[in-house]
Design a protein around this nucleic acid. Structure first.
Length: 281
DNA sequence: AGGTAAACCTGGACGC
DNA sequence: TGCGTCCAGGTTTACC
C-alpha cells in the first residue's frame, strides 16, 4: 500500500495525538509480522514517553526517551487512532495505549492493522540506529536528490528507468504508483534504459518525482482500495492519477489508450504517445 | 556488482 | 455456492 506520501500522511496523522504521551500498555495479538515482534518489546516500551516522530523513506520512527520504535506498513498496513478502546477488528495485530502524565485526560489508542503482514514493528535503544536505516538512499524531497546525483547513478545502470527509480538503493520512497506517475509527467517511457537518459530528461524526472510526491502528500496520499489515514479517512490523490491503474483508458492529455506492462515484476502504466520510447545505443 | 525472480501473506475480483 | 487463478501500495533473499 503505502509509498512515501501515505507514510508521511500517517506520520502527520498520529503525531498530534502521541507527542508527549506515555506508553501505558501494549497488546500484541499477532507477533508474526515480516519480522516477529521480540519478546521484550512491551517491557522495553512501557512507561516510555514519545518525544518525536519522524519518517525516513517508508519507515516511521517513533522516538521515546530511551527507545525508538521503527515501523513499516508493508503493502497493506495502516495505523489508526482511537480515542477509546474499541473492539479489535480482524488484522489489528498490535494496540498501543498512550496517556498523559497527569492521567486526567483520556487515553489515546494506536491500532496497527495489516492484513498481509508484510509490515513490521521493531524497537531499539535510542542510541542505536540499525544498519539498514543508516544505509538508505537519499530522500527524494531533500536537496541531496538532484540532477547530478541521479545522473551519476543512472549512467552506470542498464535497467529500465521505471525499475531504477523504484530501487530503494538509489532513491527511497518512490513506489509503484508514483514511479509510473512521475515518468508520465516527465514524458519518459518507462522502459528507457537508465543510462540512455539525457541530462535534461533526468533533470525533468527529478523535478517530477518531487512534484508528484508533494502533490500526493497535500491530498493525503492515494487510496486505491483500503488506505486510510490514522483518522480513518482515505487519501484523495487517486483522482489526480494520470496513468496508474488506467490501462485502455484515454490519456488525459492526448486520448491515446494507456498501456500496461509488467516491468521488474510490477505493473507499469504509460501513455505511448506522451511517453515515446527513445532507443539509443 | 548488477540484474532478475521467487518468497513472504491475505483477500478481493473474476471466470467457469 | 464453490473453486481455481490472478492481482495488489514492499522488501529481502537467492541465484545467474
Amino acid at each position: 500500500m503505502p509509498e512515501l506520501p501515505e507514510v508521511e500522511t500517517t506520520k502527520r496523522g498520529i503525531e498530534p495525538f502521541l507527542l508527549g504521551k506515555k506508553i501505558q500498555n501494549i497488546q500484541i495479538f499477532q507477533p508474526r509480522l515480516r519480522y516477529p515482534i521480540s519478546d521484550h518489546f512491551t517491557k522495553h516500551l512501557i512507561n516510555q514517553r514519545v518525544t518525536s516522530i519522524d519518517r525516513r523513506a517508508k519507515y516511521l520512527l517513533i522516538h521515546t526517551e530511551s527507545r525508538k520504535i521503527i515501523l513499516h506498513l508493508g503493502m497493506s498496513g495502516s495505523l489508526r487512532i482511537e480515542l477509546s478502546s474499541i473492539e479489535r477488528r480482524k488484522h489489528d495485530h498490535v494496540i498501543f495505549e498512550f496517556q498523559n502524565d497527569d492521567a486526567q485526560s483520556d487515553a489515546v489508542f494506536l491500532y496497527f492493522h495489516d492484513p498481509r503482514r508484510f509490515g513490521f514493528i521493531q524497537e531499539y535503544p535510542q542510541s542505536i540506529t540499525p544498519e539498514f536505516l543508516i544505509k538508505l538512499a537519499p530522500e527524494p524531497l531533500s536537496d541531496s536528490f538532484d540532477t547530478d546525483y541521479l545522473f551519476n547513478i543512472l549512467k552506470k545502470r542498464k535497467k529500465a528507468i521505471k525499475v531504477a527509480i523504484m530501487d530503494q538503493n538509489l532513491v527511497v520512497g518512490v513506489g509503484n504508483i508514483y514511479a509510473s506517475e512521475a515518468l508520465f509527467m516527465a514524458g519518459i517511457h518507462p522502459e528507457t534504459l537508465s543510462s540512455d537518459l539525457t541530462i535534461n530528461q533526468i533533470s525533468n524526472l527529478v523535478i517530477m518525482i518531487k512534484r508528484v510526491l508533494n502533490a500526493a502528500i497535500l491530498q493525503g496520499g492515494t487510496t486505491l482500495k483500503d488506505f486510510v489515514n490514522p483518522s480513518g479517512n482515505p487519501g484523495y490523490f487517486a483522482q489526480t492519477l494520470n496513468v496508474y491503474g488506467k490501462q485502455q483508458k484515454p490519456c488525459n492529455v492526448c486520448q491515446t489508450p494507456i498501456q500496461r506492462q509488467i516491468l521488474g515484476q510490477r505493473a507499469t502504466y504509460w501513455c505511448p504517445h506522451c511517453q515515446m520510447l527513445t532507443l539509443k545505443s
